[in-house]
């Protein structure tokens, strides 16, 4: 993944002009990340494929609505993927396998791995620095809430703390993050 967010912006703009080669390159660069993200949320590979396919059709058809001034390319695409995942989770009868603990493991300790990945990229360096300033339990509560879309009760049992406490970790963590980011 080249560390140049502008490049993704340009590709989306070219998609808006109907250039299929631009969509292909956009897919090549971003699909592995978006696919991993969808599979993380849904915990089912085949459904993640469905989401990825629909999301890229949506990206292709709505490329002209993308505004580089307003959103970053990856944020815009992630938004499309995440909302489709959340819709799927709401399907009646949808059964979601239990989380595998990968997020908990990756972000444990001082979260060196994930934060280094963020620092390596120009667009996410600031987020990495601000995440690093959070208390580890706040950081953990936020990423579990974000990736595993857990109910607070689930998070509570996994972090062995009461529900009310976890809620305040997520909220205080987000407030501190906001102060740091703005």
């Amino acid at each position: 993944m080249p560390d140049n967010p502008r490049h993704l912006d340009e590709l989306i703009q070219q998609c808006a002009q109907g250039r299929e080669a631009a969509l292909e390159e956009l897919y090549r660069l971003s699909a592995p990340h978006l696919f991993a993200f969808a599979a993380r949320i849904l915990r089912q590979g085949d459904l993640a494929e469905e989401v990825l396919q629909e999301s890229f059709l949506s990206i292709w058809r709505n490329a002209s609505r993308f505004s580089a001034e307003r959103s970053q390319a990856m944020t815009w695409m992630t938004h499309i993927v995440r909302n489709r995942c959340i819709d799927l989770l709401r399907r009646p009868g949808y059964e979601r396998p239990d989380p595998d603990g990968a997020i908990l493991e990756a972000w444990a300790d001082e979260a060196a791995g994930p934060l280094d990945l963020l620092r390596d990229r120009q667009d996410s360096r600031r987020l990495a620095d601000c995440m690093a300033q959070l208390e580890s339990k706040q950081r953990m509560a936020i990423v579990l809430s974000f990736f595993d879309d857990l109910s607070h009760r689930e998070i509570a049992s996994r972090l062995s703390s009461p529900l009310g406490t976890i809620k305040s970790w997520v909220r205080r963590g987000m407030e501190r993050l906001k102060r740091c980011l703005s």
Partner: peptide, 20 residues
């Protein structure tokens, strides 16, 4: 979203099957 969605980079990428 512009700030927090960058967390997507922390997930190890996974190549989707070519059928997609």
């Amino acid at each position: 979203e512009n700030d927090l969605y960058l967390l997507v980079w922390t997930i190890p990428p996974r190549t989707p099957p070519s059928r997609v």
